[in-house]
């Protein structure tokens, strides 16, 4: 058992290392990513600061919490690169036929992709999110977590966000095995995340019907939950409950992913010469 866990850990590290190397292969691209991350955080934080200054009575939280929420969600988005995750990799591999290389490995395909994505996200955390985020937090006067417990819970919640997003991306990617293209599906999926995850607007500002829809879907757990816990809007039992909901979605989606992949794998046939 110990050796199996050790083997799994080594496999994870190897793929993670590959993912990290890929995401840092081009130096100029790296600097541009850093620049884009800084511009994005600055812009979104400034918009919310302006709105708070003009209409403070409309917010259930302080100006500092509002700005910090905006920065945390944007930096999390940069780290997770939700718009180009596993679904894009699956689509590329199906299109150019390189999927079989991954299938030949003695490690399950979903686990390989998970490790790959983990490596890329870890690399972006260290090389983009922290170098861009720390100076921005200081310059824009953004705050630390609401409490030490909130900080820890938010970190755990971010890990669950990563897993949840990976699962959603993988499930969307499975569609490519039927359609051979992500077109259309990808846009609809990205639209759902943009609208219902709390990435751009804190969900506490959403009008009733839209907030109700977001309650019954997993997308709010991706960006809203870790940021709301970080700033202390969700704290104590409410924060624990939100993280439990995240965990529940992660389990349900993993079961869906395994079932979906098993069905796809059975129907899969590779041809070539």
């Amino acid at each position: 058992m110990t050796s199996a866990v050790g083997h799994g850990g080594r496999v994870l590290l190897a793929f993670a290392w590959q993912g990290a190397r890929t995401s840092t292969a081009y130096t100029t691209a790296y600097w541009m990513e850093l620049l884009n991350a800084a511009v994005r955080v600055f812009a979104v934080v400034t918009v919310w600061a302006v709105l708070y200054r003009s209409y403070p009575q409309q917010f259930p939280v302080t100006g500092g919490q509002t700005k910090t929420y905006a920065a945390v969600t944007q930096l999390t988005a940069v780290m997770l690169t939700w718009w180009s995750g596993a679904h894009h990799r699956i689509a590329r591999q199906v299109r150019d036929g390189t999927l079989y290389v991954d299938l030949l490995r003695p490690v399950s395909y979903p686990f390989q992709l998970l490790c790959w994505e983990l490596g890329e996200s870890a690399a972006r955390l260290g090389l983009v999110v922290l170098p861009a985020g720390i100076p921005l937090f200081v310059l824009l006067g953004l705050g630390p977590p609401g409490s030490a417990a909130g900080g820890l819970l938010s970190a755990a919640s971010t890990v669950l966000s990563f897993v949840l997003l990976y699962e959603c991306n993988f499930l969307v990617g499975l569609v490519v095995f039927r359609t051979l293209s992500l077109k259309g599906v990808q846009h609809a999926y990205h639209a759902l995340i943009t609208l219902l995850s709390g990435l751009w607007i804190p969900l506490w500002l959403y009008p009733g019907p839209l907030a109700a829809i977001s309650q019954v879907l997993p997308f709010r757990s991706i960006f809203y939950t870790p940021a709301a816990v970080y700033v202390g809007y969700l704290d104590g039992p409410a924060a624990v409950r939100a993280c439990a909901v995240q965990l529940g979605w992660a389990v349900v989606l993993w079961l869906g992913l395994e079932a979906g992949w098993a069905g796809t794998r059975r129907a899969l046939s590779a041809q070539g010469g």
């Binding site: 709105l51 409309q58 077109k183 259309g184 846009h187 609809a188 639209a191 943009t194 959403y206 839209l210």
Partner: peptide
């Protein structure tokens, strides 16, 4: 599909602006 995608993404962008500017 591409036209559908472009329409949906831009509609969502405008919807987000609407969420902000109907509240403020």
């Amino acid at each position: 599909l591409m036209i559908f995608g472009v329409t949906v993404l831009n509609a969502v962008d405008v919807a987000l602006l609407a969420v902000i500017l109907t509240r403020f």
